[in-house]
């Protein structure tokens, strides 16, 4: 058996394709991105080494507006953690505690997660349409004409308008994870609490939520890193506009690289996004302490 486990040819054949792809498409490009980020380069003329100038510009330049995109991404992260996740948790707790139609609700709430973000984005473009969109039409029929906005075209509303569908789409995803978590709580524990006289609210807050901590931690990490990486919905709805009002790091990166051919500067944004994702993932892991159950 040992001979079989140490079959060098087999090991090589098994690991080779995955390793080539992984190194060629992920490892090497990340290193290349890091190298580009120290250069001034437009993709045509020669690369010029400029040290950390790209990073300095990134964090100080008003016109590039990178700090603002980070604030936008963090705002999205805060909204997901404090609005989206509580909704998901409430729904998960409701449907996991034996209600009729459990599977039906579960299935329906999850539908938006499966649909392509482009489709959802295009659909919300129509919902937000200032003249015929269902949102303004509804407001008009309710006599709230003054509440109508060119949702995606105005500086003040654009950011919230692009965040809404993002939050809406992924409620079902977090709910699914939490639902699975609640289901894995042993019924004996809940039963015991009930016998001790706990009501439904107490069971949820004192028993289930503390036991759900590991799942909640995963959800928070997903919500925060997902917010830092957010691209599709914003690209479809506004492309970062109007006048950068709804810009996030990844839309800025794409427009720098492929719009303005600032390869070095764009790569610095890419490296910053990776760094921020890792940073927040580690911070969250440290902050939410979980014991192994």
């Amino acid at each position: 058996m040992d001979k079989i486990r140490k079959n060098k040819l087999a090991i090589f054949l098994f690991i080779f394709p995955a390793a080539v792809l992984f190194i060629g498409i992920i490892i090497v490009p990340i290193i290349m991105s890091a190298i580009y980020s120290f250069h001034d380069w437009d993709g045509i003329t020669d690369m010029k080494f400029i040290g950390v100038k790209n990073y300095i510009e990134l964090f100080t330049s008003e016109s590039a507006g990178f700090p603002k995109t980070i604030l936008n991404a963090l705002l999205l992260a805060i909204l997901s953690v404090f609005i989206q996740l509580p909704i998901s948790l409430a729904l998960a707790l409701r449907i996991s505690r034996g209600i009729k139609g459990e599977r039906f609700f579960m299935t329906v709430f999850f539908i938006p997660v499966l649909i392509s973000t482009v489709v959802i984005g295009q659909l919300w473009l129509k919902i937000y349409n200032p003249r015929y969109g269902i949102l303004n039409v509804a407001l008009e029929t309710l006599g709230l004409d003054s509440w109508c906005h060119t949702w995606l075209g105005e500086q003040e509303t654009a950011l919230m308008a692009v965040f809404m569908p993002t939050l809406w789409q992924y409620v079902g995803y977090h709910m699914l994870l939490m639902y699975a978590g609640v289901k894995s709580v042993s019924p004996d524990v809940i039963e015991a609490a009930k016998i001790d006289g706990a009501n439904g609210w107490q069971v949820s807050t004192r028993i289930i939520i503390p036991l759900l901590k590991p799942v909640i931690k995963i959800c928070v990490i997903f919500a925060v890193t997902g917010s830092l990486k957010a691209f599709d919905m914003i690209y479809v709805l506004t492309g970062g506009g109007p006048d950068h009002a709804s810009e996030v790091p990844s839309t800025l990166m794409v427009s720098m690289i492929f719009g303005q051919s600032r390869y070095g500067f764009g790569s610095a944004i890419a490296v910053s996004i990776i760094f921020l994702c890792f940073f927040f993932a580690i911070v969250i892991k440290r902050c939410i302490k979980t014991e192994e159950y």
Partner: peptide, 21 residues
């Protein structure tokens, strides 16, 4: 461990080099 690192790397990180390749 290296493969598992791939779980956290966002797809953006590679877009420019992959495009150039």
């Amino acid at each position: 461990n290296i493969f598992m690192l791939g779980l956290t790397v966002p797809i953006h990180a590679a877009i420019l080099p992959v495009f150039l390749i």
